[in-house]
Structures are given as C-alpha cells and as structure tokens.
C-alpha cells in the first residue's frame, strides 16, 4: 500500500504541467472574460445612471418651463380680463353719458316746445277772448 516509487515525482511534475496548461487555457481566458463582463456591466450601469440623471434633470427643466408658461398664460388671461372689464366700463359710461345728453336734449326740446306752445296758446287766448267778447257783446261794443 505504501510503496513509493517514481510515480510520485512524475505525478508532481505532471500536476505542475497541468496547472500551467490549465492556467493558459482555462483560468486566464475565463478570468479575463469574467473581468471584462464585470467591467462591461459596470460601464453600462454607469452610463444608464448618467442618462437617468440626465433625463431627470430634463424632466425638471421641462416642468419648470411648463410652470413658467402656465404662469405667463395666467397673467395674460388676467390682463385680458382686466382690459375687457375696463373696456366695458368705459363703454357703459360712454353710453350712459350719451343717454344722459340725449335725455337732456329731449327735455330741453320739450321745454322749448312747451314754451312755444304756451306762447301760441296765449296769442290764441287773446283772439279767442276777443271773439268771445264780440260774440257776447256784439262787434260794435268791442272796438
């Protein structure tokens, strides 16, 4: 069972050879492949993280732009509303003024016509009263 012979050194040499050959055809290339894959994955992850950050900053930027636009549109709307209100107020005031002047004019006209009517009426009163007197007293007496 314990018979040592040349098997031992030869086996040792053979094992060292196997180590060397496996190092060349197994450990080195596969370790390289594993490391490369690690690096590849790390790189991809880094780029992905970068683009994610970029996308997030873009989103933020766009959101800020949207908020600004919304604010702007709101201010425009408010401005327009104020303008419209002003215009309506102005128009209303103008119309009221016009109406007032027309009313005054009409009142003036009425007054005038009343006066003329009264004047004509007074004249007619005179002639009418003369005619009444003539009719009652007779034309000779009136003169």
């Amino acid at each position: 069972m314990f018979d040592f012979d040349a098997t031992m050194p030869l086996m040792a040499v053979q094992f060292l050879l196997l180590t060397a050959i496996l190092n060349a055809v197994f450990y080195k290339p596969l370790t390289k492949a594993l490391d490369e894959r690690d690096a590849y994955i790390r790189n991809n992850q880094a780029t992905a993280k970068e683009s994610l950050a970029k996308a997030e900053s873009l989103v933020k930027e766009y959101e800020a732009q949207i908020a600004a636009a919304r604010k702007e549109s709101q201010s425009i709307v408010e401005k327009a509303q104020a303008e419209a209100r002003e215009i309506t107020a102005q128009k209303t005031a103008e119309a009221q003024k016009q109406v007032q002047t027309q009313k005054e004019q009409a009142a003036q006209e009425i007054q005038q016509q009343k006066e003329t009517a009264l004047a004509t009426l007074e004249q007619q009163v005179d002639s009418l009263s003369r005619q009444i007197l003539e009719k009652i007293l007779g034309p000779e007496l009136v003169k």
């Binding site: 069972m1 040592f4 031992m8 086996m11």
Partner: peptide, 15 residues
C-alpha cells in the same frame, strides 16, 4: 481513482 494511490496524494501534498 489516481487519488487512491499514496504516491499521488503525497505528490500533491508536497507540492
């Protein structure tokens, strides 16, 4: 199995 020979195991152990 080569490992059931004492020469192999001693070779590996000495290495």
């Amino acid at each position: 199995a080569p490992t059931n020979d004492i020469n192999t195991t001693v070779a590996l152990a000495l290495l």
